[in-house]
Amino acid sequence: MTKSETSGVGRPRPADSQWPLWEVFVQPPGAEPHQHVGSVHAVDAEQALQNARDVYARRGEGVSIWVVPSSAIVASTPDDMGPFFDPGNDKPYRHPQFYKVPRGVRL
């Protein structure tokens, strides 16, 4: 795991002359979880929220918005992907298909 920006990761970033980058998460109506939708540049958190609303929620797409400084996102790296997620793949007994049900029984 490395701490890095979701955007432009893995490359040296030129000095940003248009304010810090914020990642935007919008929660759609109907008890859905917040979902990443993109990013905005903003001078502070308040402006980031306003920009996020104007850019990503012009048509009632959201009931709630989170903005997070891109530099604060901690992400797994593609290179770790195999080993990092591996425990999930060799444990078929975590899935319902692993278990047998007698013929004719609907479970």
Partner: peptide
């Protein structure tokens, strides 16, 4: 007005996508 505002938004969505490739939006602008 709503349409023109959308076009600004579309520009921002794609600039934001381009930034994930490691370029600075300011440079593009």
């Amino acid at each position: 007005l709503a349409k023109v505002q959308d076009e600004a938004g579309h520009g921002l969505y794609i600039y934001c996508g381009t930034e994930t490739l490691g370029v600075d939006r300011h440079e593009l602008v």
